[in-house]
Design a protein around this nucleic acid. Structure first.
Ligand SMILES: NC(=O)c1ccc[n+]([C@@H]2O[C@H](COP(=O)([O-])OP(=O)(O)OC[C@H]3O[C@@H](n4cnc5c(N)ncnc54)[C@H](O)[C@@H]3O)[C@@H](O)[C@H]2O)c1
Ligand SMILES: NC(=O)c1ccc[n+]([C@@H]2O[C@H](COP(=O)([O-])OP(=O)(O)OC[C@H]3O[C@@H](n4cnc5c(N)ncnc54)[C@H](O)[C@@H]3O)[C@@H](O)[C@H]2O)c1
Lengths: 185, 185
DNA sequence: AAGGTTATGTGAATGTGAACACAAGAACTA
DNA sequence: TAGTTCTTGTGTTCACATTCACATAACCTT
């Protein structure tokens, strides 16, 4: 598996097996990225990771803000796993006086009225974990504060200007999809 | 908007606008469900909800188990939103002696070794929120305990028998998708 | 160096999903 | 009741994604 430079490679077959898809899928997809692999050896893992990171634009550390430090927000703030993709939660906001001023995982929770500091800090991304009722109005504040991408955990559709991208992950709905696949009995 | 029976209807155009898609999309999709709408009026909301629930097989209360009551697991256990889809978190499990025996949201945290009670309780679904290292081994225990569907929050691919369905939602990866859409600057 | 083995990259075929455009049905109006 | 206005349901087209099959190339072994 090691090529002449000592760098480790992985084949489309291995990768496909690992994530449970067809191997042509891997090759076809990667081929859109240009010539990436070596016939007979496979794909250089380091090179592959670099390529994917550059496509996702996560080659440099990306700063993100967390808005709504409740049950879910606190879990996210304590989660070290964002770092592997190069993310850094640079600020956290809430409305609750009981939460403002506290620190979780070395991030101080700020008053939501201070959202404007995101512009100064050059924070482009926000993780939205406020109650559904507050989701749209908070989104509008985020957009005003210059945020360009929002990861939304509420079950709401968020209306935003075209230049802003929203990705919604509705955990309850993901769970609701499961029974469909399960035969009755 | 009210039809002769006083039941409220919604049109494909309204629905489409609401969730941000094309109205043909709505009509085409619903048409696969059979004749559901009324020309000139739209779709009867109650009938529509019933139909979708029956397709997703969430017409009766579905019991689910939570495995791994850490940061994320605790948030999930405190979350009331699963009820709107008819879910009931009927049991919770962990390995940590500090957690076992405690109650969150009226659910007592059990020792993971007691997973077999899921069979007796007829729990089909599990929410998996354990560290990645424990994900595959815990999955195997869940399968042995008769679980047929798993909502996986770890970033691992889980290998399961064909009769078991896994849905993975990798929160960090969702965040990692955002920068792609955002123009550099 | 040559032949065997492995694994990529891709043209072609197939499958799937979205969009368009409109006929036909239902409701409303006068 | 006749005509107007909505809105569904669908045949068709288009676009994209997946799969197949294989030529091509790099590596490895003897
Ligand atoms: N907890 C879960 O497991 C879970 C699962 C699925 C979806 N969600 C969704 O995630 C969101 C948060 O859930 P949660 O369980 O953490 O709720 P929560 O009530 O525990 O936390 C909400 C937090 O947002 C803060 N907040 C309220 N209004 C605000 C505003 N205008 N600006 C800033 N902060 C504000 C509150 O003070 C609180 O700290 C909700 O939309 C919920 O539907 C949560
Ligand atoms: N917290 C987040 O925001 C977040 C975000 C994305 C993904 N995740 C993923 O969710 C999972 C849980 O994250 P977390 O932050 O809650 O971690 P955590 O460490 O806070 O909690 C893990 C819990 O699982 C328990 N556990 C460990 N091994 C176990 C086993 N074999 N059987 C049963 N329980 C076991 C631990 O005692 C602990 O209570 C991880 O896979 C993580 O990658 C979490």
């Amino acid at each position: 598996m090691a090529n002449e430079a000592g760098a480790l490679c992985i084949s489309s077959t291995n990768l496909a097996e690992f994530i449970g898809v067809n191997s042509c899928q891997i090759r076809k997809d990667f081929s859109y990225f240009g010539y990436l692999g070596i016939r007979g050896s496979g794909y250089n893992i380091e090179k592959l990771i670099k390529k994917i990171k550059s496509i996702l634009k996560i080659t440099v550390v990306q700063k993100a803000a967390l808005v709504g430090v409740g049950n879910l927000g606190s879990a996210i703030l304590s989660f070290p796993g964002f770092a592997v993709y190069g993310f850094n939660i640079a600020a956290a906001f809430d409305v609750s006086p009981q939460k403002i001023g506290k620190k979780i995982n070395n991030v101080k929770i700020e008053n939501i009225s201070k959202l404007w500091i995101l512009k100064r800090k050059k924070v482009n991304l926000a993780i939205l974990a406020v109650p559904s009722e507050a989701a749209q109005s908070t989104t509008e504040k985020l957009v005003k504060a210059g945020v360009k991408g929002i990861l939304n955990f509420s079950s709401c559709y968020l209306s935003v200007p075209k230049k802003v991208k929203v990705i919604t992950t509705d955990i309850a709905m993901e769970l609701a999809r499961l029974p469909y696949y399960i035969p009755a009995g």
